[in-house]
Computed example of a mutant assay.
Amino acid sequence: MAAPGEALTPSGYIDHHLANLSLARISEHYDLGWQISETSFWNVHIDSLFFSLFTGLIFLVIFRSIAKKATVGVPGKLQCFVEIVVEFVDQNVKETFHGRNPLIAPLALTIFCWILLMNIMDLVPIDFMPYSAQHLLGIPYLKVVPSADVNITMALALGVFALMIFYSIKVKGFMGFVKELTLHPFNTPIMIPFNLLIEVVSLLAKPLSLGMRLFGNMFAGEVVFILCAAMLPWWLQWMGSLPWAIFHILVILIQAFVFMMLTIVYLSMAHEDADH
């Protein structure tokens, strides 16, 4: 599937599928005259935002529905699945988080389920939704995997980072947080510049690695699906896509789990007081 007027070549096919539906591309495609570049602050990836909100809404609707209809008798299959997920997340929080905060378990559950649903969008056949959007709605570009967009993954990571800073200051106090950055690992005034350099770099590396790890794995998986579709005839595409999709299910689960676990670990570290 290629954009209107574009030759159906492998390189054109790949470029098309790697392009987000952004304000800049809408302006260019429909010749609206908006002066927005791809690197502009005002450029927005509309498809990534839409499918992020869409998957988040699915999570909220399913869990709210199960919570309202939950029974103490013989539960349905969906209720059993939801209970397994909740118990799994709750157990990991109890084993990893050493502070007291009623927000951590719901936050971990939300992160795990939301990222898992965003990742699952990578299993949708690569041409199904973009082809439908182009021919039914006239939408020229469409990427349906929000976690394959670095803007989404880094936004999630920065949200976790903001909570880390907030709880570090709340638990330790502002001066306690400053002392943690300046007097660790070497508790002597002469080493403050060295300590500050190490701790600030370590602190900033947490959200960077958190967001880039998820993005890198999901983007790589999406590229493999695109290459299978671009390089093979339609009647042979399943030979490349099906084995990769089966393996990719493991990647999808692991990446949601890793993001959740690192969030719990980072917030646990933020709740450690000076005595610890």
Rank of each mutant, 00 (worst) to 15 (best):
L210T: 00
L214W: 09
S241C: 03
F219V: 08
W235H: 15
G221I: 02
F247A: 15
G216T: 01
L210N: 10
C228H: 07
M218V: 01
L227D: 04
M212A: 08
L227Q: 03
L250E: 01
A220M: 14
P243A: 03
N217D: 13
M231Y: 15
G240L: 13
Q237K: 13
G211A: 08
W234G: 12
L210Q: 12
G211W: 11
I252Q: 04
G216A: 10
L236T: 02
C228S: 10
A220S: 15
H248N: 14
I226P: 14
G211P: 13
P243D: 05
A230V: 03
V223T: 05
M239S: 14
W234I: 12
G221K: 07
S241N: 03
R213V: 00
F215V: 06
L250C: 01
F247R: 05
W235R: 12
H248D: 13
G211Y: 14
V224E: 09
E222H: 10
H248W: 15
A256V: 05
I226A: 09
L242W: 03
V224D: 10
F215Y: 15
L253P: 00
M231E: 10
M212D: 00
W244Y: 13
G211R: 05
L232C: 04
F225P: 04
A229I: 05
F259T: 07
A245C: 00
A230I: 02
Q255A: 01
S241W: 04
L236F: 13
G211C: 12
Q237N: 06
L210S: 02
L250A: 08
F225T: 05
A220G: 11
A229F: 02
W238S: 06
F259E: 02
G216F: 08
A245F: 00
A256E: 05
W234K: 15
G211M: 09
M239H: 06
N217M: 14
M261C: 11
N217K: 07
F257H: 10
L210C: 02
N217C: 12
P233K: 12
L210K: 07
L232T: 05
M218H: 02
I252P: 04
M260Y: 03
P233F: 08
S241Q: 14
G240Q: 14
I246N: 05
L242F: 03
L236S: 09
L253M: 10
P243N: 04
F225N: 06
Q237Y: 00
M260D: 03
M261S: 12
M212S: 11
M212I: 07
I254V: 10
L253W: 06
F225C: 02
P243G: 02
V223W: 08
A229R: 09
W234L: 14
V251C: 04
G216Y: 03
E222W: 02
M239K: 11
M261P: 10
L236G: 03
N217S: 12
Q255E: 15
